[in-house]
């Protein structure tokens, strides 16, 4: 039996939305190994469990953050180990479509179609994400309003500034109300006021979904994240609250804030023989 379209009820809560979760963690990785290119094993034996909340993914350049996020977005197939997303095996072909409908992804190099307007681009992404036809216009409008681009919604993408393009990228990532939201360097190109707004948005989104934000900026993590994941050379170095990260550092460590000192204390592991940078 198909549901009749109610005239005065805009949207009913479906059975799938109130069904209890059958998994403990939105993202669970056991000994995960992912290749970047032919040779490099960018993620090498990572164990991780992430639930709802905002998780800040920190680490030096080349730590494997982008490769990990690509594997979480299911566009890279893991080379080894086990990756479970929303209770489903992420490397299996069966069920990948259903899984991807629940994922939002903003890549580090976010490319877009210059001739599309912001609304057209987000609508196109909503179509690619197989959203129900009826929900698309409203969901697109809501996503654009959440990133503060409502007044530019019908302008072409090529007329936008760098920060606006980034926000359009966030709008396409959240248009399908994802349960797993992956943002690779979302604060690049945003001015300080916009970064504050983004932190507020992340905290709202993190209330009922699993948000993973990779960033270079330690202060973003301190302000917006409920949980910090520190990676180096493809492995997990630290996972805990920002306060615990700050507690790991002492007065002798490099950095201007407690969190920065904790960051450098944890990364200055024995045997670190890389260059001065």
């Amino acid at each position: 039996m198909n549901e009749r379209k109610d005239t005065f009820m805009t949207r009913a809560v479906g059975a799938a939305e109130i069904a209890p979760a059958t998994y403990a963690w939105e993202i669970q990785a056991d000994g995960l190994r992912v290749r970047a290119g032919r040779r490099t094993m960018a993620v090498d034996g990572l164990d991780l469990a992430l639930g709802t909340g905002v998780h800040g993914l920190l680490g030096p350049n080349g730590a494997g953050k982008t490769t990990l996020i690509r594997a979480l977005a299911t566009v890279l197939r893991p080379a080894g180990g086990k990756l479970t997303l929303l209770g489903a095996d992420a490397s299996a072909q069966a069920g990948r479509r259903e899984l991807r409908r629940a994922i939002g992804y903003l890549p580090q190099e976010f490319g877009y179609y210059k001739r599309f307007t912001v609304r057209e681009f987000v609508e196109y992404m909503a179509w690619l994400k197989e959203m129900p036809k009826r929900e698309v216009p409203g969901a697109v409008q809501r996503a654009i309003e959440r990133v503060g681009l409502a007044d530019r919604a019908d302008d072409r993408m090529r007329t936008l500034s760098g920060g606006m393009v980034r926000r359009a990228g966030i709008a396409q990532a959240i248009v399908n109300d994802p349960r797993v939201l992956l943002l690779d360097e979302p604060t690049v190109g945003l001015d300080p006021a916009q970064r504050l707004r983004l932190r507020e948005l992340l905290q709202v989104l993190g209330a009922d979904s699993c948000v993973v934000v990779s960033t270079h900026l330690v202060e973003d993590v301190a302000a917006a994240c409920s949980d910090v994941v520190l990676m180096a050379r493809g492995r997990l170095v630290f996972q805990g609250t920002p306060d615990r990260l700050a507690a790991a550092g002492g007065p002798g460590d490099v950095g201007d804030s407690p969190i920065e000192r904790g960051y450098s204390a944890l990364l200055a592991a024995p045997g670190d023989d890389r260059g001065a940078w």
Partner: peptide
């Protein structure tokens, strides 16, 4: 050539259908 290849590749419609 396709600037948005990475966001497109991560969508459910990417694959044999697209």
């Amino acid at each position: 050539i396709d600037p948005a290849y990475e966001v497109v590749a991560a969508t459910p419609r990417a694959g044999l259908g697209l």
